[in-house]
Simulated scan of single mutants.
Amino acid sequence: MVSFFKRPFFSNYRVIFGLYFLVTLFVSIRVVFVDGSNNYQIFYYSLDHLIHGKSLYTVYPDEYTDHYHYAPTFAALFSPVFSLPYSLGLFLWHFLFAGIWVLAIYRMPFTHQQKVFAYWFGLQELFTSLVNSQTNPLIAAIPLFAFISFEKRQPFWAAFFIVLGFNIKIYSLVAGALFILYPQKIRFLISCLLWGVVLGLLPLIFTPFDKLLWQYDLWINQLFIKSDHDKWGNTSIHRLVHTFISPDVATPVIIGAGVILFCTVYAQFRRFTDTTFRLLMVASTLIFQVIFNPVAESPTYITAVTGVLIWWFCSPQTVLDRVLLIACLIFTIFSPSDLFPVFLREQFVKPYVLKALPCVLIWFRVIYLMHIDTNKSTHGVNLA
């Protein structure tokens, strides 16, 4: 499979970027002119609600279904897009997030062939996210930009990306776990505080201070409501546990166990200087924030798949690793698509949460690899 992508045509960036452009163009045309997007309608009207002092978190059935779950900063941050005519903003929305994910992979310290493999492997999963007009490609890219900033000894910018992610989806805060691996910890924490204030107050451009405090109070309440989610309505380790172990296992117990296991790798402090170890930590954060999210949905898996790619480049690539990678390709990436038989998807993949299972197993594999010295160097890494 890997040798296939080494052929000159398939490893040519012009071909790859051209394909990504065409896929994104197809999605934009389809969503704007055929399907529409309830998700983007939620985003789009948030700016209007912020400006006019309306609750961001009330249901507006004449405008969209479901709720707005993001911080008030989100509406202000993307105001340049939301201020455009609706169809134009929606059309450009997909290009914005596809481009950010492509750029993040390009900036990572991978070899040319590793980047080529990442682009081909992640194409279908990115498509799944784009057709839902969600922010998940950005959420997948943010830990990569944070990692690059840490590696360049730029904790100020690493803090920016992590706080930015928090203001879009709070699970992005998991990427903050990277700072323990690097020096300048105090500078990073101070920078987080600074960026927290700057981004937190950004909506003051559009709304008075008292209204902003009111919006934040509503946001906190909305987060608790969203967390109290139907245990059978997610695609994560939570539903795997409830399906195969017991439906009575509480969400905090599952998350707590995951956090403890996640943090055990800090005992390997002597390996913090190992680039492979740090990359595996990035993989762990990307996968963790999806599989332990009690409201994870299929389109969020572009984040987990990005983590899977980093794990693959750092793994020993044994038979077990290859089996896990192929399982991820089949069940995580292809199962929601038209390339997968409908009968198998409805009778097996959805009931048994098979989309999540490969990523869950790979995350445990990542944790295991971080606890052992594989003596495997990361080829092609150049962080100078």
Rank of each mutant, 00 (worst) to 15 (best):
V2E: 10
F4M: 12
F5K: 05
F10E: 02
S11M: 04
R14V: 09
V15M: 02
L19P: 00
L25E: 15
S28N: 14
I29A: 11
F33E: 01
G36L: 07
N38V: 09
N39F: 06
Y45A: 10
L47P: 13
H49Y: 10
H49E: 06
L50V: 06
L50N: 09
H52M: 01
L56D: 05
T58F: 15
D62Q: 12
E63D: 15
Y64D: 02
D66P: 05
A71Q: 06
T73M: 14
A76V: 05
P80I: 10
V81D: 13
Y86L: 11
S87F: 15
L96H: 11
L96E: 14
V102N: 01
A104W: 01
R107C: 06
R107G: 09
P109Y: 03
T111H: 02
H112I: 00
Q114C: 04
K115P: 00
V116I: 05
L123P: 00
Q124E: 14
T128D: 04
L130V: 08
N132F: 13
P137I: 06
A141V: 09
I142K: 00
P143K: 09
L144N: 04
F150R: 06
K152D: 00
R153C: 04
F160C: 07
I162F: 06
L164M: 15
L164A: 11
G165D: 11
L173T: 05
V174F: 12
A175Q: 07
A175C: 09
G176M: 14
L178I: 03
I180L: 15
Y182Q: 13
Q184E: 15
K185G: 12
R187A: 15
F188G: 08
S191R: 05
W195D: 09
G200K: 08
L213N: 05
L213G: 02
I220C: 00
H229G: 08
W232A: 07
S236C: 02
H238Y: 10
H238F: 03
R239L: 01
H242T: 11
S246A: 09
S246P: 11
P252G: 03
P252K: 07
G256H: 08
I260M: 14
L261Q: 07
Y266Q: 06
Y266K: 04
Q268P: 04
R271S: 08
T273L: 04
T273W: 00
D274S: 14
D274A: 08
R278Y: 06
M281V: 04
V290S: 13
F292G: 14
A296K: 13
A296E: 14
P299L: 13
P299M: 13
Y301P: 04
T303M: 12
G307V: 11
I310T: 12
W311L: 07
F313P: 02
F313L: 01
V319Q: 07
D321L: 01
C328V: 02
I333T: 09
V342H: 15
L344H: 06
R345G: 06
F348V: 08
K355L: 13
V360Y: 08
I362N: 00
F364Y: 15
F364G: 15
R365D: 12
V366Q: 04
M370N: 02
I372E: 11
T378N: 15
L383G: 04
